[in-house]
Measured scan of single mutants.
Amino acid sequence: DRHTIHIGDITIHLEGFSEEELKLAEELIKRGIHLEEVKRILEELYR
């Protein structure tokens, strides 16, 4: 499954994450956390 996060003019595609995980990812990215770090956090929390 493919999910999309929109932040301003930026569109990020993250596959294989639930709606809850994507909301967390979006919040972290909006707070300035680097995408690679966001992915690592999600994997630690949900895998």
Rank of each mutant, 00 (worst) to 15 (best):
L24W: 08
H6E: 09
E19N: 10
I33Q: 02
G32I: 15
E36P: 09
E26M: 14
D9L: 12
V38H: 00
V38Q: 00
S18Q: 07
E26Q: 13
I12Y: 14
E15H: 12
Y46E: 03
L35V: 07
E19S: 13
E36V: 07
R2K: 14
E27N: 10
D9S: 12
I7T: 06
H3V: 14
E20N: 07
E44N: 05
G32T: 04
R31Y: 15
I12T: 04
T11G: 06
L22R: 08
I33S: 03
E37F: 15
R40V: 03
R2Q: 11
V38N: 00
I41H: 01
H6Q: 14
L45V: 05
V38I: 09
T11F: 11
H13W: 11
D1F: 01
I33C: 07
L35E: 04
L45W: 09
R2F: 13
D1M: 01
R31L: 12
E36S: 11
R31Q: 07
I29Y: 12
G8A: 08
L14R: 01
F17G: 06
S18T: 13
E21Q: 08
L28Y: 10
L42M: 07
I5R: 01
I7C: 03
E27V: 14
L24Q: 05
F17E: 02
L22N: 05
R40H: 04
A25Q: 01
H34A: 13
R31S: 06
I5H: 04
L45T: 04
I7M: 10
Y46W: 13
L24R: 04
G8F: 08
K39N: 04
D1L: 03
E27P: 02
I7Y: 09
K30N: 10
G8R: 02
E26S: 13
R47P: 14
E37T: 11
G8T: 06
E15D: 10
T11D: 07
Y46Q: 11
H13L: 09
K39E: 03
L42T: 00
D1K: 04
K30W: 15
G16Y: 09
E21P: 11
I33G: 01
K39G: 02
I7N: 05
E43W: 15
S18A: 09
L45P: 00
R31C: 12
L28D: 00
K23E: 06
R2Y: 13
D1A: 03
F17R: 03
R40I: 04
V38E: 00
E15T: 13
A25S: 02
L24D: 01
I10Y: 11
D1G: 06
E43R: 06
L24V: 14
L35K: 03
E44Y: 15
L45I: 12
T11L: 06
E21F: 15
L22Q: 07
K23I: 06
G32V: 07
R47Y: 02
G8S: 07
E44R: 06
I10N: 08
F17K: 02
E36Y: 15
E20M: 10
Y46V: 06
L42K: 00
L22H: 08
E20F: 13
L42C: 00
G32H: 04
G32E: 02
L22G: 05
E21L: 14
E15L: 14
E26A: 14
H6Y: 05
K30E: 03
H13E: 08
E26W: 15
E36Q: 08
Y46T: 03
R31E: 03
K39I: 14
L45M: 04
T11H: 11
K23Y: 06
S18F: 06
V38L: 11
I12L: 11
V38P: 00
K39R: 09
E26D: 08
E37V: 13
L14C: 12
Y46S: 04
I12N: 03
L28G: 00
E36F: 14
S18V: 05
D9V: 09
E37A: 08
E27G: 07
I12S: 05
I7L: 10
G8Y: 08
L28E: 00
L22I: 11
F17C: 05
R40M: 06
E19W: 14
G16P: 02
R2W: 12
E27K: 11
I41V: 05
V38M: 07
H13R: 12
G16S: 05
R47A: 13
H34W: 08
G16T: 10
L22F: 11
E26V: 15
K30T: 10
R40F: 02
L14F: 12
D1E: 05
I41F: 08
L35Q: 03
L22V: 10
G32C: 05
E36T: 09
Y46M: 11
E27L: 15
A25G: 05
L24P: 00
Y46K: 11
I12A: 06
T4Y: 02
I10R: 06
E37R: 09
K23C: 02
G32M: 12
R47H: 14
E36C: 07
G32N: 04
G32W: 15
K39M: 15
K30L: 13
I29D: 00
H13C: 05
G8P: 04
L45S: 01
G16C: 06
E44F: 15
L42I: 14
D1C: 11
I7H: 08
E20D: 09
E15A: 13
S18P: 05
A25I: 13
I10F: 14
E43F: 15
R31V: 05
E43P: 00
G16I: 13
L35C: 01
E15M: 14
L28F: 12
E20I: 08
E19M: 15
R40T: 02
I10K: 09
S18W: 09
I33W: 15
G16E: 05
E44M: 10
R31F: 14
E37Y: 15
K39H: 04
T11Y: 10
L42S: 00
H6T: 13
S18R: 09
D9F: 11
G32D: 02
K39L: 15
L14S: 03
T11S: 12
E15C: 12
H13P: 03
E21K: 03
K39C: 10
H6K: 12
E26K: 14
L42Q: 00
I33Y: 15
E27S: 12
H34M: 09
R2A: 12
H6P: 04
I33A: 04
L22Y: 12
I12C: 05
I5E: 05
R47V: 07
I29S: 02
L14N: 01
R31W: 15
E21Y: 15
T11A: 07
Y46R: 15
L45R: 01
L45A: 05
L42E: 00
K39Q: 09
E37S: 04
R31G: 04
A25V: 12
I29A: 02
I12W: 08
L28H: 01
H34C: 05
I12D: 03
E27W: 15
I41W: 12
I41R: 02
I7G: 05
T4L: 04
R40W: 09
L14P: 01
